[in-house]
Design a protein around this nucleic acid. Sequence first.
DNA 1: GTCTTGCCTCAAGTCCACTTCAGGTCAAGA
DNA 2: TCTTGACCTGAAGTGGACTTGAGGCAAGAC
Lengths: 164, 164
Amino acid sequence: MDLMTIGDVAARSGVAVSALRYYEAEGLVTCERTSGGARRFPRSVLRRLSFIRAAQNVGLTLPEIREALATLPEGRTPTARDWARLSGSWRARLDEQIAALEQLRDGLTACIGCGCLSLSRCRLSNPGDAAGTYGPGARWLSPALRRVPPTSNSGRGMRPAPAG
Amino acid sequence: MDLMTIGDVAARSGVAVSALRYYEAEGLVTCERTSGGARRFPRSVLRRLSFIRAAQNVGLTLPEIREALATLPEGRTPTARDWARLSGSWRARLDEQIAALEQLRDGLTACIGCGCLSLSRCRLSNPGDAAGTYGPGARWLSPALRRVPPTSNSGRGMRPAPAG
DNA sequence: GTCTTGCCTCAAGTCCACTTCAGGTCAAGA
DNA sequence: TCTTGACCTGAAGTGGACTTGAGGCAAGAC
């Protein structure tokens, strides 16, 4: 079978039905409709979803991901090379993120003995040497890797929770 | 002068006036009031704010930070050692975050040649070997280090925007 | 005396990535 | 025929960390 129902896609991808509808509304995936109005997704949506999740893991927002996806060739099925091109810039981004975290950690190591936490000098409270704030609600670093996934009850393919 | 107005604190800390009020409401900082009802902060609030920002950068939520702050000694001014104790556990957290990002990057390196992005096997779309989703809205990694600070117009001490 | 500035409170809005809900349609099986 | 289950839509809710807005008080400059 070439086309999948939204339920199939959800089951196979682990992406919730509601999220799939949301992605369609946001233009991240496309689908056909049956005469009755039900969505029918091509198999290729699975790889697309995979890309979306990977991109989110690298820290991209949905608008950014949509932009990236928009550069895929129309007309033909994207090749491995296409996907690789898209994710090519991620490495640099990850490297940056890692570097920033390391800087923070090293700042911590330096500060931990003195407990300085100076607003203007401490690299912990002030990474990247900026003197002021980073703006409203800007949390710079990982919202928490080790945090247990928000356990909503939607769980289609959800693990019990890693409880790291 | 021993006590600072909320405006002074905002100017010196780079934390917005509205955020300071919010922090007070949430019990993260305390202050006295003038007869007219205006807040007067002790100088020590600056270090406290510094700690709050640093903790946010490590990925703590405000409730977590409040808990941490609650363990500071009452009665006496916190010493460098007190602050150091508080931030002592951050190192492990940062190490974890760094490790997770490195894993993702290495997964990227492995995947980038093949463009696989397999939902079940790719370490990029599926870090930490979990087969399903991580649940609703769970973005695992940095919401974006390199992202330009949300340029709201509140800008009290805000930089023009690094435009990375 | 009035203007401006800085502060106050409380309520509601913002952003992101969704989820949840209410109410309805459609096709297949008992 | 009735029921069940999967699907549909549009609107509203969620959480975290704030910001913004409306409406008002108090002190210093002119």
